[in-house]
Write a protein that binds this DNA or RNA. Structure first.
Lengths: 156, 156
DNA sequence: AAAATTCCTATTTCGCTTGTGGGAATGATA
DNA sequence: TATCATTCCCACAAGCGAAATAGGAATTTT
């Protein structure tokens, strides 16, 4: 399950994406999406640090996407806020961590299954972009190819 | 991510499945799988209440599967211990709960995406059985058909 | 009767999540 | 310059659940 924080982040990103390039204020997003304002402020800072949005301060300030919405995937947002998509760290690609209590990870039956599961889940989330979601149809192979991040993959 | 509890449950179920019908003691499972014994005791009781295993007390006591291993899926175990597979309750099939802060759930863009995600994830976990996992190949369409539990599905 | 097991109840400890509050830094406007 | 509205930063508090641990009751075999 996603954290409340992550759910808010996703809703906020969808909201910002709807602005088609324009800026949106935190207070407006918060009111529209029913998110506590101060809490959302902190979340937006995280999204900014993750380079998913850009910000402007002052009277005409607000947040806007730092990329076109067809280049921002749900998987990317979720990883930034909540971390791994996989059900266990040992089955994660981007947040791999060895299973402490596991004798032999390579032959671990459980891990094999959970890697299958994570791959299917990641396939959906890394291919579905904000643009696709707003358009209704869930596909954008282009973004999936562009955004594929295959760094630091465990051997086993 | 799965809880530690759920990871232990999965490892224990795989361990019990390896016994091919025989009983296994909690202390043996705990030692083999590196799980705190008292903690595992509580987990096994949960698995028993969920009808996934049967128990015998006393000197020759222990746990065994209550069904053949090709009729026990990973999805079933995870749901019993951790609850929904979906990333949000409003995208869950077996643990559906309305999203409080959501104005119109039917048209919610986020929910549509997360339902896709949950369906892909559930497809893997509900079709992969203990038997299939132990055999190495991940498929058992038979079990998926038998165990499909389509009760209480939200309309929207 | 003794030993070994499952099973039940209570408690503890710890860290994380979900916020709230105050105010500093920044930028537009008059 | 003064004012106002915004992002941004820091601290903290309350609550909650997860992960155990402990002790012993109930049950079954020998």
């Amino acid at each position: 399950m996603l954290s409340q924080r992550c759910k808010y982040a996703l809703k906020a990103m969808v909201d910002v994406a709807r602005a088609s390039g324009a800026s949106r204020r935190v207070s407006d997003i918060a009111e529209r999406e029913n998110i506590p304002r101060k809490f959302l402020e902190a979340i937006m800072v995280d999204l900014k640090k993750g380079l998913l949005v850009e910000s402007a301060r002052g009277k005409l300030g607000g947040y806007r996407l730092s990329r076109p919405p067809d280049l921002v995937t749900f998987g990317e947002i979720i990883r930034l806020i909540d971390g791994p998509l996989a059900l266990l760290p040992c089955a994660s690609r981007n947040f791999y961590k060895r299973c402490e209590d596991c004798e032999d990870e390579v032959t671990c039956v459980l891990r094999r299954v959970l890697i299958d599961a994570r791959n299917e889940l990641a396939a959906v989330l890394d291919r579905t972009t904000l643009a696709a979601a707003l358009a209704g149809s869930p596909q954008s192979q282009f973004a999936a190819a562009v955004l594929a991040d295959d760094s630091s993959i465990p051997a086993g």
